[in-house]
């Protein structure tokens, strides 16, 4: 369908699929992708680590310690529903053109999702399971480790997937807006010089990387917790 639309000359900016595929392969081997991803991946990975670890810790702790709820929850909800991306242009003014700006962009777009889902997962632990643990006099630690966390696992993983897709939005947005480096720059540059096949190839590559990452996470979840697979 894409091929036909491209061939039909709707717009010169919409190249046919075959041209994009050729551009994709050539960019893969001539080092353009390698260079761009070398710029983008390190901040992405750092941002992801902070997002995941920080998000789960925040979510789990507010789920367990109710007294922190009133303070953090409204913030998380604001960050989840509001178009926080509006803040990203400002990051340049704080951090300048640096990897820090990218990392911060990733974290503010990804972490609230992870934290909120972890929190919901903890909240949703079935009361009868908790009563069971209580009736068997399980310690607080054991209850968390063997009852609450396993039962929240599905929600936490769903949150991780949301967080990762938020993180990808963060890095792309940051690179498109503020730091003319990496994958975002490759897109912007090719648009300015009207190499639309290359631009599309780059976009496809980032969509593919995001898709593969998320698919890999689902696989990993199935691998780690096979019992939950067919529910």
């Amino acid at each position: 369908m894409w091929e036909l639309a491209g061939r039909a000359d709707i717009s010169i900016a919409f190249p046919p699929f075959s041209k994009v595929a050729v551009a994709f392969v050539s960019m893969l081997f001539n080092g353009e992708f390698t260079a761009a991803y070398a710029d983008s991946l390190p901040p992405l990975l750092i941002g992801l680590c902070i997002t995941i670890i920080g998000g789960v810790i925040i979510g789990v702790s507010i789920g367990l310690v109710r007294s922190t709820e009133w303070f953090i929850m409204p913030l998380l909800i604001i960050f989840q529903t509001a178009p926080v991306s509006a803040l990203i242009p400002m990051l340049t003014y704080i951090y300048g053109i640096s990897d820090t700006a990218k990392v911060v962009a990733i974290v503010i777009l990804g972490m609230p999702l992870v934290a909120l889902n972890s929190y919901k997962g903890i909240q949703a632990t079935s009361p009868s399971l908790l009563e069971m643990a209580k009736s068997f006099r399980a310690s607080w630690f054991d209850t968390i480790l063997f009852v609450i966390l396993p039962s929240a696992q599905k929600m936490i993983f769903a949150g991780l997937r949301l967080g990762v897709s938020g993180a990808f939005i963060g890095i792309v947005l940051a690179e498109l807006l503020i730091t003319p480096t990496g994958i975002g720059d490759l897109i912007t540059y090719n648009r300015f010089v009207a190499h639309y096949d290359k631009m599309f190839a780059t976009i496809v590559s980032i969509l593919a990387v995001a898709g593969l990452t998320l698919g890999g996470m689902s696989k990993l979840e199935d691998l780690l917790f096979p019992s939950e697979k067919n529910e």
Binding site: I10, I183, R191
Partner: peptide
């Protein structure tokens, strides 16, 4: 399922010339 979690932001530059 691909597009629901994809970084759509990356597609915007492609929309502009079109």
């Amino acid at each position: 399922n691909l597009f629901i979690s994809a970084p759509i932001t990356a597609v915007i530059p492609a929309l502009m010339p079109i």
